[in-house]
């Protein structure tokens, strides 16, 4: 445990010092990884801890991104506050559709989230007064902002990682794990599935929205199909599943692998990456449902023998 904290702190310091030695390309990749790792962790609060697989998290990523972008364009708030505002709106939006749909379990909830995600994308694409439609929104470029954003994204990731750990150990985490195990039995020990699922969806949605806001600032250009596309939603699911659903380190590893793989594939085989994700998903489910974490445990056990 202490070793884990020490290692995490060391990694954090190393990552914080790294930009001084990075090429712009790697710098970009790292910042992107931080945001995706954070989002995968936040997705995992709902998908892994509570066992409610969402195929619609892009809706919150997009909501947070566009709200933050609009606030920044209006010059109303400094960036961190604009991101938080975007996150809060995204969390509230998640609650609006989540409160009724979270009563559904298993595949039914997942299917409802596909509907929510696609409906949100359509509305955002055609609501051009707010989102700029398919031509998107451009944010003013601030010289040197990318370096600051690297640290801000890293700080956000650290916060989400600590939150993941804290939720897992808290009352909320225990309630969510119990709900995943058996909703009715959870009610029989006094757990209100509605309250705790709503709460975690709000937190997960808000964190995803904040990530969307930072993403918008970093790329200084956003457009609905990139922010809210089905591929975006899938990517959050994939990162967590590849790494290991329900764990903390899993989504971290999964997101890193995802970003690297994506970068590699987009560079060399742009037309293959969706199918390879699919193949990866099939392989994980068939051979190691606990993902990289499960594989790691298995290897450690074998080495110990």
């Amino acid at each position: 445990m202490k070793l884990g904290i020490a290692l995490s702190a060391a990694a954090l310091v190393a990552l914080a010092l790294l930009p001084f030695a990075l090429s712009p390309y790697t710098h970009n990749l790292m910042t992107l990884s931080f945001l995706f790792v954070a989002t995968a962790l936040a997705w995992n609060w709902l998908g892994g801890y509570a066992g409610q697989i969402s195929f619609g998290h892009a809706a919150m990523f997009g909501t947070g991104g566009f709200v933050a972008a609009r606030i920044l364009l209006a010059g109303a708030l400094p960036p961190p506050l604009a991101w938080i505002a975007g996150g809060l709106v995204a969390g509230a939006y998640a609650l609006i559709w989540g409160h009724p749909t979270l009563r559904l379990r298993g595949p039914y909830f997942s299917i409802a989230t596909i509907g929510v995600g696609e409906a949100t994308r359509l509305v955002f694409t055609y609501w051009d007064k707010f989102t700029g439609g398919s031509s998107g929104l451009s944010l003013p470029m601030v010289p040197g902002a990318k370096r600051t954003l690297y640290w801000e994204a890293l700080a956000f990731l650290a916060l989400i990682a600590v939150a993941s750990w804290a939720i897992r150990r808290s009352r909320l985490g225990l309630a969510l794990f119990a709900i995943r195990g058996d909703v009715e039995a959870a009610a029989d020990v006094g757990i209100s599935a509605t309250f705790y699922q709503d709460l975690v969806l709000f937190l997960s949605g808000a964190a995803t929205g904040i990530a969307g806001g930072i993403y918008a600032s970093y790329f200084s250009f956003i457009e609905p199909n990139d922010m809210l596309g089905f591929d975006r939603s899938i990517s959050f699911v994939l990162m967590a599943v590849i790494g290991g659903v329900g764990t903390i380190l899993g989504p971290v590893l999964g997101a890193v692998v995802f970003v690297l793989l994506r970068q590699f594939l987009i560079g060399s085989y742009p037309q293959l990456y969706l199918g390879l994700y699919g193949a990866l998903l099939i392989a994980v489910i068939l051979f190691e449902p606990l993902g990289l974490m499960g594989l790691g445990h298995r290897l450690v056990r074998r080495a110990a023998r």
Binding site: R171, L174, A175, F177, A178, R180, G181, D182, E184, A185, A186, A187, D188, V189, G190, I191
Partner: peptide
């Protein structure tokens, strides 16, 4: 349950993903 009535099931329904202690802890916590 908060009022003080709690049931058990004919077909047992432990939380299979939690340890024995965490199962009891869930009861005690909520």
């Amino acid at each position: 349950v908060h009022k003080g009535i709690v049931r058990t099931h004919q077909i047992v329904r432990p939380f299979a993903n939690l340890t024995v202690f965490e199962n009891a802890l869930a009861g005690a916590t909520f």
